[in-house]
Simulated scan of single mutants.
Amino acid sequence: MVPPDFDSPAEERLHRKQELAAAFRLFGKFGFSEGVAGHITARDPEHPDRFWVNPFGMSFSQIRVSDLVLVDHDGTVVEGEHPVNRAAFCIHSEVHKARPDAVAAAHAHSLHGKAFATLRRPLDPLTQDACAFFEDQGLYEDFRGVVNDTEEGRRIGAALGPHKAVILANHGILTVGQSVAEAAWWFITMERSCQAQLLAMAAGDPQHIDRETALQVREQIGTPLAGWFQLRPLWDQITAEQPDLFD
Rank of each mutant, 00 (worst) to 15 (best):
98 A>H: 09
152 E>V: 10
227 G>L: 08
125 P>N: 04
145 G>V: 00
4 P>G: 05
138 G>A: 01
61 S>Y: 01
71 V>H: 03
7 D>Q: 10
33 S>L: 09
238 I>E: 14
181 A>I: 02
60 F>K: 02
131 C>M: 06
35 G>T: 15
130 A>F: 04
166 V>D: 11
122 P>H: 15
192 R>T: 03
24 F>G: 03
198 L>N: 05
110 S>D: 07
45 P>K: 09
70 L>E: 02
116 F>E: 05
172 G>R: 12
50 R>A: 10
146 V>W: 09
136 D>P: 02
97 K>C: 07
232 R>I: 15
127 T>Y: 06
228 W>F: 08
15 H>V: 08
104 A>Y: 00
217 V>E: 11
220 Q>E: 14
189 T>K: 15
221 I>M: 04
156 I>K: 06
28 G>M: 07
103 V>G: 11
110 S>I: 03
244 D>I: 04
99 R>M: 12
146 V>G: 10
123 L>A: 12
20 L>A: 12
121 R>A: 10
145 G>E: 14
102 A>Y: 03
133 F>W: 01
161 G>S: 08
11 E>V: 07
11 E>K: 03
153 G>H: 08
150 T>Q: 13
21 A>I: 09
135 E>F: 11
59 S>N: 13
72 D>Q: 02
192 R>W: 04
119 L>D: 03
219 E>W: 11
201 M>E: 10
36 V>Y: 14
